[in-house]
Write a protein that binds this DNA or RNA. Sequence first.
DNA 1: ATTGTCTTGTTATGTTATTACATCAATTGC
DNA 2: GCAATTGATGTAATAACATAACAAGACAAT
Lengths: 141, 141
Amino acid sequence: MMQPALTKNQSLVFDVLERSDAPLSAYTILDKLRDNGFRAPLQVYRALDKLTEFGMVHRLESLNAFVACAHRESECCGAKSAHGGHGHGTVAFAICDSCGHVFEFHDHTVDHRLDDWSKSKGFKPAKTTIEIRGVCAKCAA
Amino acid sequence: MMQPALTKNQSLVFDVLERSDAPLSAYTILDKLRDNGFRAPLQVYRALDKLTEFGMVHRLESLNAFVACAHRESECCGAKSAHGGHGHGTVAFAICDSCGHVFEFHDHTVDHRLDDWSKSKGFKPAKTTIEIRGVCAKCAA
DNA sequence: ATTGTCTTGTTATGTTATTACATCAATTGC
DNA sequence: GCAATTGATGTAATAACATAACAAGACAAT
């Protein structure tokens, strides 16, 4: 599933996320887009749904917030997700509770171990969340 | 940190969770405890905070809901968490989106890989969330 | 009995997410 | 052309999740 060109609202939301150093809640995004004519949460949530579907944005479950996808295509194993676009098995996040910065990474061994567990139980995984909350090197120093 | 005896509210909340086949939201718990004198969300959230601290209850971030801790002391490697009580490095969850059942497990290899990543980045982890959403064997059949 | 600490009760409010319905624009098939 | 379909948008209202602030009770230690 390759993404089509973004609509106006999708572009606006994505730009806000890309420019941000830290994850943003839907309502924070809404506030930043008031001047662009946004009035209601749904305008944000609808754009976020699509962007997430396209793999351009991730939802951080432990934060109820969203980040632009940060991983470089180049640093990757080359594997494409089932949905096309740039994709890995599962993306993991390390979230600094001090400065808010989000580190995005993936680990094949972890993916493999979780897959093994699922297979052994007959569990059919649809979406996996891995989030480490803590303090980044810079903030810990 | 060993847990003290539970208070009345903590016991009531824990009992509700233990009897449930699926995770419950704080507000669902509140409704189930109306007859026991519960009137406000905070009564539930306060109990949940403590129970979580004691390791008796887990919060499922992708669901905004709570489950009683399901793992047997016996099936474990014996490692105790830093907080005492029964504990592992990180507990992972597989959540059936069809029947709601939650499978709780842990995997040392996964823990180790995530630790390795953290160490390599100087990131100090505080709490790690691993949740697999999908469909369990029974429901997939 | 006074102090300190922990638990509880209560009201109000803040934050996150969705339902329902109307409208508009682009595309397709006839 | 022009209905029919599809997808994006706008708007209001509401649902669902969570916390702040403050008052009061329970209980142990001195």
